[in-house]
């Protein structure tokens, strides 16, 4: 069994049709962004949130982005970020997680063939159980526009955003290549020189793991005793 989580960009506060969606057909996190409807400051905050999520994803996870110009060729819909999770993230029930992992190998469709949005296809595979995704499944309580809407079925809801149509069109075009994304914040963080690295080389008791932060004061590193 696999997880699928479609996450709407907060621009959906403006466009209440776009919502958080889950789909058990794959193990991807989808971030649907509409860059035209959000101001620059808000977008940078959301991108920062994405960067945080990506940095904390399980080992082996991959993050892709459908480039905007490619998306525009196919459809005027919003650009999309999607994440392939390396591990199950159902942390509430470890036993169920291991079961899901074993089932996932059987049911998870391949993603690396450039057709990541095939998971949003409403056609359902046989013997594929439904999985709820915890709190993400619920409608955001702080969105008054969304709150006032009547409940919709997942398929209807996606249809309202036009995503299914856009995704199906994109499947017909192999040129819609998913490109790995590095957020600007992460780039900036990596490009900085490790000024204090020398301090760990002379200490036999300390093993340096990685740099986790920096600021005007200096740097913060993750270390452990050997």
């Amino acid at each position: 069994m696999a997880h699928f989580l479609r996450i709407a960009h907060p621009a959906s506060l403006i466009n209440p049709a776009a919502r958080v969606k889950t789909n058990p057909a794959s193990r991807e996190l989808h971030f649907v962004m509409d860059q035209d409807q959000v101001n620059r400051k808000f977008k940078s905050r959301v991108l920062r949130g994405f960067a945080t999520i990506r940095a904390k994803l399980p080992k082996g996870s991959k993050v892709f982005k459908v480039q905007r110009h490619v998306q525009q060729e196919v459809s005027p819909g919003p650009p999309k970020l999607f994440v392939q999770l390396g591990n199950s993230i159902d942390c509430r029930n470890p036993d169920a997680t291991s079961t899901k992992e074993s089932q996932m190998e059987e049911h998870t469709p391949p993603v690396s063939d450039g057709s990541p949005f095939s998971q949003s296809n409403p056609t359902k595979r046989p013997h594929q159980p439904e999985v709820s995704f915890g709190k993400i499944e619920s409608t955001p309580a702080f969105d008054p526009a969304v709150k006032s809407l009547p409940p919709l079925s997942p398929i209807d809801e996606i249809d309202r955003t036009g995503l299914i149509e856009a995704n199906n069109k994109e499947l017909q075009r192999p040129s819609a290549v998913a490109v790995e994304v590095r957020a600007e914040t992460i780039k900036k963080f990596d490009s900085r020189s490790n000024e204090f690295e020398w301090t760990f080389k002379g200490d036999p008791e300390i093993m340096h793991v990685k740099k986790i932060g920096h600021g005007g004061f200096g740097e913060v590193h993750m270390v452990c005793f050997e």
Partner: peptide, 15 residues
């Protein structure tokens, strides 16, 4: 702290 325990080391310099 105990061995094998991860912790954060904040390194500071006058600047």
């Amino acid at each position: 702290s105990n061995a094998e325990e991860l912790f954060a080391r904040k390194l500071m310099k006058p600047f």
